[in-house]
Write a protein that binds this DNA or RNA. Structure first.
Length: 450
RNA sequence: GUGAGUGUAGCUCAGUUGGUUAGAGCAUCCGGUUGUGGUCCGGAGGGUCGUGGGUUCGAGUCCCAUCACUCACCCCA
């Protein structure tokens, strides 16, 4: 094969199949039922708690993420979708949202607002990662942040809210909350120095990854699963010995408040997070069976971040959870969510006169909250009923020339296969009776003001 | 980024040690005569067997590459 044909062949194999790129998926109607439900729960709980929703752009200048998440983290080193715009500016599809929210907080001078500022989001994110169960290149997260106040009660509050949302979704029992403190930035600096001192001279016993970690991200040395590394980690200096008095007391208070809120948790001194901005409290929701493999969310305090990103020193704490992972857990537990897409009534008609009357009738039915589909095409009665069957409606209305002439309409009970003739003017009342006032789709977005 | 497994119709899967024109169930569409669905009966459409090479008289089946999916690692939501 010549070079040219090879080039042509590879070019050919790349272009024709129109399908989603690797690691990304369509969210089809049946999946949206879960997405919708989760969003509803999140919005409800956070609105109740006084949080306001925020959406930041899907892409930011690369530095927003690189500086906040940390240059040496896996996310920044290998998982970001980074590209140049036409002017050569480096932009990145957001891999998470805390950085964007903090950037927005600074940019819009939110420190001028009543503190703390409480924000939540439900958005898609992007990471260039090898796809796997519960890990996609585009994925949805919801999260919430409290920025502008330092108090252990807020940390407890965040964990409590996260747990509350899990309760609403019926999955709280599937998770064990892992809790730890990684101290203040100052504590951590001292600890990392001690850790490095301990490991220097022992490099030969470390696995390849850990040799790298020693310089780039020493905290990660502690949770390596390699046998030799584990043994070394056991004997390594403990974070707790390097915590300042304030940090220790802070952590103690967080635990006290959690006890007060009756939140069960497991203290996990090895828990560190893959993003550099965290300080003091860190926590993750681990699958009770699979552990970290199947974590659905995590968070913690990040008191240094606002300052790192050029704002005034401002304390903050937050949480984020993966929506696809939540759905996977719900499905595994066979948890069903209510679907509001079911149709109440199918309207079948024959003849032009009947069709005319149906147009208005359908509109009136929908106004009252009856979810209605009409077959306004030319199909035969047989075809229309078949269609009604596909939509799985409990009732079908049948309007033909005879009924138009007599001012009546037929209500067919699809399950029983029985039908009754009612006065055309009374058909809506009859249907509401059958379906039940409480089942009508009466949702209103609220009154607009002119 | 590393390792392993899988890839046949829209879906779930058969397809013998390589051998005629690649099958089934479900789904879809059309019939079974007037304005009545589901069940039943009859019929039809739908595949360059993931893609590209190679071996062979002959490849869905064997080999190589590639892509995708799944799983594990790394890491994370």
């Amino acid at each position: 094969m010549t070079d040219t044909t090879q080039a042509q062949a590879s070019k050919f194999s790349l272009s024709p199949p129109y399908r989603t790129p690797k690691g990304v998926h369509d969210i089809l109607p049946q999946d949206h039922e879960y997405h919708t439900y989760i969003k509803k729960v999140v919005r409800h709980r956070l609105r109740q708690a006084g949080f306001k929703r925020i959406s930041t752009p899907i892409f930011e200048y690369t530095d927003v993420f690189a500086r906040s998440i940390g240059d040496a983290t896996d996310i920044v080193e290998k998982e970001m979708y980074t590209f140049l715009d036409k002017k050569g500016r480096s932009l990145t599809l957001r891999p998470e949202n805390t950085a964007g929210v903090v950037r927005s907080y600074i940019q819009h001078s939110m420190q001028q607002l009543a503190q703390p500022v409480e924000l939540y989001y439900i958005e898609p994110f992007f990471r260039y990662d090898r796809p796997q169960r519960g890990r996609y290149r585009q994925f949805w997260q919801f999260g919430f942040e409290i920025i502008g106040e330092l108090d252990p009660a807020l940390d407890a509050q965040i964990i409590f809210l996260a747990n509350k949302i899990n309760e609403d979704l019926g999955i709280e029992k599937l998770f064990k909350i892992q809790l730890n403190t990684i101290g203040s930035l100052e504590d951590r600096k001292n600890y990392i120095r001690a850790l490095k001192d301990y490991y220097y001279g022992k490099e030969r016993s470390l696995c390849e990854h850990c040799k790298d970690r020693l310089e780039k991200n020493p905290l990660r040395l502690l949770d390596c699963k390699n046998e030799d590394c584990t043994i070394l980690a056991e004997l390594a200096p403990k974070m707790t010995d390097y915590l300042s008095k304030e940090s220790t007391e802070y952590y103690r208070d967080v635990k006290e408040y959690l006890a007060e809120l009756e939140i069960e948790y497991v203290e996990n001194p090895k828990l560190v997070r893959g993003l550099d901005y965290y300080t003091n409290t860190v926590f993750e929701f681990w699958d009770a069976k699979d552990g970290a493999q199947n974590a659905i969310g995590g968070g913690g305090r990040y008191d240094g971040l606002v300052e790192i990103m050029g704002g005034q020193a401002t304390p903050a704490v937050g949480y984020a959870a993966g929506i696809e992972r939540i759905i996977a857990h719900m499905k595994r537990e066979k948890i069903r969510v209510p679907s509001k897409d079911n149709i109440h009534v199918f309207v079948a008609q024959l003849g032009k006169e009947a069709k005319k009357k149906c147009l208005k009738l359908i509109d009136e039915m929908r106004e009252t909250g009856l979810k209605t589909i009409g077959a306004l095409g030319k199909g035969s009665m047989k075809k229309q009923l078949k269609l009604a069957d596909k939509f799985n409606v409990p009732y079908t209305l049948i309007l033909g020339i005879t009924e138009v002439r007599e001012g009546t309409i037929i209500i067919r009970d699809m399950e029983k296969g029985s039908q009754e003739i009612v006065k055309f003017d009374q058909v809506i009342d009859e249907l509401i009776n059958k379906i039940g006032e409480e089942n009508l789709d009466k949702y209103s977005p609220g009154e607009i003001i002119y």
